[in-house]
Amino acid sequence: MAEDEALIAATALVKQFGDFTAVDGIDVRVRAGEAFGFLGPNGAGKSSTMRMIGCVSRPTGGALRILGLDAAKDGAAIRARLGVCPQQDSLDLELTVLENLTVYARYFNIPRKVARARAMELLDFVQLADRAGDKVEPLSGGMKRRLTIARALVNEPEIVLLDEPTTGLDPQARHLVWERLFRLKQRGVTLVLTTHYMDEAEQLCDRLVVMDAGRIVAEGSPRELIDRHSTREVLEVRFGNDPLDGFADKLDGIGERVEVLPDRILVYTGDGDAAAAQVHGRGLTPSSVLVRRGSLEDVFLQLTGRTLVD
């Protein structure tokens, strides 16, 4: 891909805190209009990367160009064109819901009248219009997150950065957030998000990188990654409370690959039902059997030997 096509171009990007290397030389290109994800467990370096892209953290090494500008030099100019939804809601509890947007808009030098009109529009968009005059404190977690997203949109940004947009939300609230983010994507806004939920990555991302210990271990669309690093189906078998170590040998040869986890065994295969029949055929009686499609969780497990959510 040509350099000028990329809205975000990181080359050999490094972030160190003292002796600790949080981001260890990553290369990333984000194109206009796509939803790009950083998938990885806690501590993989996703948030550090996001903070560098948000120009609130100076890269220790490598090059980072955003919207054609140098992140190290033109931070303020870049930030003017970004929308940021941080991992922890940093809403202003001393202000009302509406003021959180209008006050924030002033930081972008948006005229008061425009700011107010846009804020009302955004509250409509995130379905908080009826709470405009309320204080922020009593809002639910999902509402706060939606308000934070609205705040990130107040300057009509070209790129929206979302750090763990649905972490800590209940399932219903998550779906509402996903649905709003999907609308944004439809409008052509470039989304960059981090997540350690594979379902979130699959739902939202056109393309993603899998991060582990500060490095990128794989890159592609969710489908490509699953095709490349997992199988079409996965058989999950459990054997009650029995220790699982001995079962690896007994299941050997079934499917393409067998993975023993502390609580269950995963059998990677093109045909889950057939594999299940084979398990029973060997005289084994699992306490539970589940056939599902291969997922990004399996991709991560295959690439790093660890699960995403621990």
Partner: peptide, 14 residues
């Protein structure tokens, strides 16, 4: 405590 400026500094404000 309130971490107001975390959000402020994510904007062009220095």
């Amino acid at each position: 405590f309130m971490r107001i400026y975390d959000a402020t500094l994510a904007t062009p404000i220095t």
